[in-house]
Simulated scan of single mutants.
Amino acid sequence: MRNQITCAIQYVKMHSERNPCSLLQGASILFQEEIMESLKGKVALVTGGSSGIGLAITRVLLEAGMHVAICGRDKDRLRKAEKALKEYGKNLIVMSVDVSNKPQVKKWVKASLDRAGRVDVLVNNAGVARWAEVENITDEHLDYQLNVNLRGPLYCSQSVLPYMKEQRNGYIINISSVCGKFGFAGTTAYSASKFGLMALSDSLREEGAAHNIKVSAICPGYVATPMVTDAPVPLDEMIRPEDIASTVLFLLNLSEYAAIKEIVITRKGES
């Protein structure tokens, strides 16, 4: 890659007198092409990939040349996502799955492996949120969020780990939340599930290190998705789903010698 960059810069320098920006533009284009080449043909599994953050992640990974298997519970959303991404053809695998159902998760992972042949990346993105103050939290309210936000990532990770260990390579990216770093009024059950996801990420990272498996957590604030339409922040001031997708792409293009434990993403102006 170093030789390629040197040659590209030498070429662009020859033309930079007419366009002072051409050197940077040329290096940027080369870097983007290198990213595409490094991910081309690899396989990613994305939970909750039919809308919001998951759909944005799926799109950017497909654009990078990856094969992507997505799952979700809402069959109508899955059909819409499949239609929206039809240009990627057989590189996209779609299946209806409830991530809180362990047998369904195992079936999805096996079906994806049968189609794609391997698994390089797991993005645990599927999540739900219900706001309530502590005294109003019901068992159903708590179980619903723990099942999807914590058991789901656990089941998916358990299902892919044997294959990643056999390959001696893999990356698990958990989409957590700032609520996995701090508790806020009304977020008790949601925060508990996301704090649990952060602990799961830490344990997975420790256990996977010996097998060349990386684990990172992304912790965003409010992201403009249907899940937060009742938030006290206008949608047009929220983090974009594409910001999270770009962060996933950034993580996947780190060298094998670099590792990032977690990334916290806040809205502009927030501390």
Rank of each mutant, 00 (worst) to 15 (best):
Q104A: 05
Q104W: 10
V105N: 07
K106S: 03
K106L: 09
K107G: 00
V109P: 03
V109W: 15
A111S: 10
A111V: 07
A111C: 03
S112I: 05
D114N: 15
R115I: 02
R115P: 00
R115M: 04
A116C: 11
R118A: 04
R118W: 01
D120W: 08
D120P: 05
V121R: 10
V123P: 02
N124T: 12
G127E: 01
A129G: 08
A129Y: 07
W131V: 09
W131H: 04
A132E: 12
V134E: 00
N136D: 13
I137G: 13
I137E: 09
Y144E: 13
L146Q: 11
N147S: 14
N147P: 00
V148A: 12
C156A: 14
C156H: 09
S157W: 11
S157P: 04
Q158H: 11
S159A: 15
S159E: 09
V160Y: 12
M164N: 08
G170F: 14
I172R: 13
N174M: 07
K181G: 00
G183S: 15
A185Q: 09
A185C: 02
G186T: 02
T188G: 13
T188P: 00
Y190P: 03
S191C: 13
K194Q: 09
F195N: 07
G196T: 13
G196P: 09
A199E: 07
L200H: 07
D202K: 15
S203N: 13
S203Q: 11
R205G: 05
A209G: 07
A209T: 08
H211G: 04
I213D: 02
K214H: 14
V215Q: 10
V215G: 11
S216A: 15
I218T: 01
I218D: 00
C219Y: 03
V223Y: 02
A224I: 01
T229A: 15
P232V: 07
